[in-house]
Computed example of a mutant assay.
Amino acid sequence: MTLMQPRDLTGTVVAVTGASAGIGRATTEALVAAGANVVVGARRLERLTDLADELGTDRVVPVQMDVREPADNARLVRTALERFGRLDSVVANTGIGSYGSVLDGSDEDVRTMVDTNFTGTVFTVRAALPTMLEAGAGDVVIVASVASFRGGADEAVYAGTKFAQQGFAGSIDRELREKGIRVTTINPAGVETEFAIGKGRTEGDPSLSEYLRPEMVAHAVVTTLQQPREMRTQSWAMWSMGQGS
């Protein structure tokens, strides 16, 4: 029997959006530990700079950006090419959400959520793909949510954006698989991050102790990228042992 060995990520280049906190930050840390070089994007440049200083500016390059802007996504990719000469993978992680009725929040809140979670994902992927297609190989990882399979009663608009990400990922998987591009959605249940606090949950909420932790989701991202290139995972749904499904 031949044992499959994890794909070595040493020297590969990964772009990660939403990297200033939570899942994006944990994913960056895990990728660097696995040997990858990472270009990190987010709106909060100071946090990105601190992350690069902590992990090594030779391994992590910060880019201030808004995923809703195509030019910003293009600059993220351009930075990877200028700094490291390649781009092997992209992790579209930026997302915002809230808990509450479909009628809660302003029209602008709803528009911002849809544009960030879905349109931003599309622009990030569109920016990354030309380089991967030219190389004939690459990975697109989209951090979605278990809400994309069964939206809860208090997250209708958020769940809708995650359903959209799932549909987008499935379509581009069918489009790109024969061209060497793997597409995966990582679908966590609730994660104990800033994302969860302040949008219907508060610091110290007892339910947060049973949530997934960011490093658990980061583990899933890195494991996905470490798969032998002969295989792919379309969707990874995950819960903590304390969460119901």
Rank of each mutant, 00 (worst) to 15 (best):
R68L: 03
N117V: 03
V146S: 09
R126M: 08
G97R: 05
V90Q: 04
M132A: 11
I23M: 14
D58K: 02
R78A: 14
G22C: 05
G100N: 12
D107S: 13
T94C: 04
F123E: 12
R126T: 05
V40R: 02
D50G: 06
T161Y: 06
G120R: 02
A137T: 10
A127R: 01
G120H: 02
V146G: 02
A156G: 10
V110G: 02
G160F: 11
G151C: 03
S20L: 04
A19N: 11
F118E: 12
D72Q: 04
T57F: 01
G100A: 08
V67C: 06
Y158E: 08
V61T: 14
R25N: 07
R83P: 00
V114I: 15
L51S: 07
L103V: 12
G18P: 06
L133I: 08
R86A: 15
V157T: 15
T27L: 13
Y99P: 00
T79G: 03
V140G: 04
G136H: 07
A156D: 00
A156Y: 06
M113V: 05
M65A: 14
V91I: 13
V38F: 06
E69K: 03
T116W: 13
A153R: 14
V32W: 02
T79R: 05
E82H: 10
I142C: 02
L103K: 13
L81R: 04
T17G: 09
G151P: 01
R86E: 09
T161K: 10
G97C: 10
D104W: 00
A42Q: 04
E46R: 12
T28K: 01
V32A: 10
L76D: 13
M113N: 02
A19Q: 12
